[in-house]
């Protein structure tokens, strides 16, 4: 999307500055009936950051995004988005923001190009300008040559890329994405990640929710883990792992795992059981590995600790649906 990149640089003086706060949230609370969905969230996201909001289902991620965009009113707290007070000046704030919603809300009656044209009109952009921009957006979305295609003819990955292109129709300074790669196959997911990296390089601010830890680790400069309406930890993915968890993990399962688990407690500082699997966390797992070598009743996997381990440690292994 070279041309859009050029336009962005052109506007760099006016909008895309780094070091400036894009989003500032203080003491945000939201109740639905008697249920407190968001319970005192504070956030500060600088321009140019890629910020990941992680959390199990029902943690309050989507509601937090909606509150930041002024799509629902908070019961307490304040939001400042791109210098505008939300929800009071939400319209002005959203004029400079792109949103990729969790569920595809593309217009099934329209072609790919019409979807972009019609959405651009909601920003008050005139048709001639939009028609000029559509080829660039299609190129960015990898949909060149599909301008006239109908929604039914697009794959899940193509639809998500079109939703991303639609969110860029107004040249936004910041993008909000709610689970941008949920339901996509690995090829489609990697293509989305590659496009998001381009947007980060162009200096745009990205705020995304996800429960794919791998996605957060790859893309985000900073993540926050949210649970039961609160942010319980926030840092860069690497610092988060270093701070909360031992760097090495050995996962063990097999018929003899229950008896072996007792031995494991003397070999690793932290041993956890989840169903039929034992997780050993340690800075040095050589003793664990030495004990496992040659055992035919146990299968094991040795890997470095990742953000998912931190996530499960902080939010627990219980199901959340």
């Amino acid at each position: 999307m070279q041309d859009i990149g050029a336009q962005v640089r052109e506007h760099a003086g006016s909008g895309l500055r780094t070091g400036v706060t894009t989003l500032e949230v203080q003491g945000l609370c939201k109740r639905y009936g008697t249920q407190e969905v968001v319970r005192g969230v504070d956030l500060r996201i600088s321009a140019g950051e890629c910020f990941g909001l992680l959390g199990p289902n029902g943690a309050g991620k989507t509601t937090t995004l909606k509150l930041c965009l002024g799509l629902t009113d908070p019961d307490a707290g304040s939001v400042r988005l791109l210098g505008h007070e939300v929800p009071r000046e939400a319209r002005a704030a959203r004029a400079q923001v792109g949103v990729v919603p969790q569920f595809d809300s593309l217009d099934p009656d329209f072609t790919v190009a019409e979807n972009l044209l019609v959405f651009g009109r909601y920003f008050g952009l005139d048709d001639s300008r939009l028609r000029q921009r559509i080829p660039q957006l299609l190129e960015f979305a990898g949909l060149t040559g599909r301008a006239e295609a109908r929604m039914a003819a697009l794959s899940g990955g193509m639809k998500r890329r079109l939703a991303l292109a639609r969110a860029l129709v107004n040249e936004p300074q910041a993008l909000f994405m709610d689970e941008p790669t949920t339901g996509l196959d690995p090829q489609a997911r990697h293509l989305i990640w590659e496009r998001l990296r381009r947007l980060i390089q162009e200096g745009r601010t990205l705020v995304l929710t996800t429960h794919f830890m791998e996605e957060a680790e790859r893309l985000c400069t900073r993540v926050a883990i949210m649970d039961r309406g609160r942010i319980i930890a926030s840092d860069s993915p690497r610092a988060m792992i270093a701070k909360h968890i031992e760097p090495q993990v050995v996962e063990v399962h097999g018929p003899g795992f229950e008896a072996w688990m007792e031995r494991a407690r003397s070999l690793a500082p932290r041993v956890e059981r989840a169903g039929e699997t034992v997780f050993c966390y340690a800075a040095d797992v050589e003793a664990v590995l030495a004990d496992l070598r040659g055992r035919s009743d146990l299968v094991y996997l040795h890997r470095p600790a990742n953000l998912e381990d931190v996530f499960l440690k902080l939010t627990g292994r219980d199901l959340r649906d």
Binding site: L71, R94, P101, F119, F123, N170
Partner: peptide
């Protein structure tokens, strides 16, 4: 839902 994500 899509429309109100724009400044509408």
């Amino acid at each position: 839902e899509a429309i109100v994500n724009a400044p509408m």
